[in-house]
């Protein structure tokens, strides 16, 4: 793939995100199986967008639990790209899953009749939370945990909706950058049309992650890796070829979205406040 004339700096940047997909898959399959069974469940429900993150999540869940115990839900809005639904169905076909279809147009439109002037971000957030609400309803109906699809890139950049796509019981992809999710998708043999298409939240027509963010995943993933995983200094990042403007932009985004990655802040009063001095493992008694 890379020619012998590739400069060493580029090679090391690419290596930074190269993962052993076999090791990662076995860890994730074990993770899903254990975290689901440990809390007394057998099944998961997953929202399928037609994109690569939810496809990989569904594939990992299918390997962990079997096709009968994965409930995929496709939730288009009337302006969603028809290709997204077709891609989601292709993923289900390949994994042997039977999707539940829920068109969210009626409830979204009914709500925004009251607020006809809202911008697309607000509409997009509402759709993300509507989908969350449906997944949690089906979670109860199907006795299935909601499995999340957020990756490390979007979690760090805050490129996600609080209580929308960020709401779930377990998250297998949250420690993998988008570039690594693509590698996993290829290792899983997911359909090319899902893996190769430009990433999009598909909250409005023609939306593109990379246009909206203003940079390519391939570029930001490596910078995030250097910043977060390796804790490189500004001087080192400059030497690696990153412009100050770009570093500033990314650092700011990570800092500004920190609240999204934390539980709500609790006013400190007692001697033993939840999560401050009251510290128990999540798997307490599991």
């Amino acid at each position: 793939m890379t020619s012998s004339t590739t400069v060493s700096q580029t090679v090391s940047a690419a290596d930074a995100l190269r993962i052993d997909t076999e090791v990662v898959l076995s860890l994730l399959v074990g993770f899903v199986r254990e975290e689901v069974h440990k809390v007394g469940f057998q099944r998961v429900v997953v929202g399928l967008s037609g994109g690569v993150d939810s496809a990989v999540t569904a594939a990992v869940a299918q390997r962990a639990l079997g096709p009968d115990d994965v409930v995929p839900v496709i939730m288009p809005y009337r302006s969603s790209s028809p290709a997204s639904e077709a891609d989601a169905r292709a993923v289900c076909d390949q994994l042997g899953l039977r999707p539940v279809m829920v068109d969210i147009s009626p409830q979204i439109d009914a709500y925004f009749e009251r607020f006809p002037e809202v911008d697309r971000t607000r509409r997009g957030n509402k759709m993300a939370r509507e989908r969350m609400s449906i997944l949690y309803d089906l979670s109860f109906a199907e006795r299935a945990l909601v499995i999340g699809t957020s990756n490390k890139t979007e979690l760090l950049l805050g490129y996600s909706t609080v209580h929308g796509d960020m709401a779930h019981a377990l998250n297998p992809l949250g420690d993998l950058y988008k570039t690594q999710v693509w590698a996993l998708a290829r290792a899983l043999g997911l359909p090319d049309r899902v893996v190769d298409k430009p990433p999009s939240a598909d909250l409005w027509e023609g939306q593109s992650d990379e246009e909206e963010l203003g940079f390519q995943y391939a570029l930001v993933d490596v910078l995030l890796y250097y910043l977060v995983d390796e804790r490189r200094t500004r001087v080192e990042l400059r030497a690696l070829g990153y412009a100050d403007d770009f570093i500033d932009l990314i650092v700011q985004r990570v800092r500004d979205s920190q609240y999204k990655r934390r539980p709500p802040v609790i006013a400190k009063l007692s001697a033993r406040t939840i999560d401050r001095e009251f510290r128990y493992p999540r798997d307490w008694g599991r």
Binding site: D15, A16, R18, I19, D20
Partner: peptide, 11 residues
Amino acid sequence: PGRGIIQGAAL
């Protein structure tokens, strides 16, 4: 605890 998933280094 297992961690470190860079290719070529196994775990």
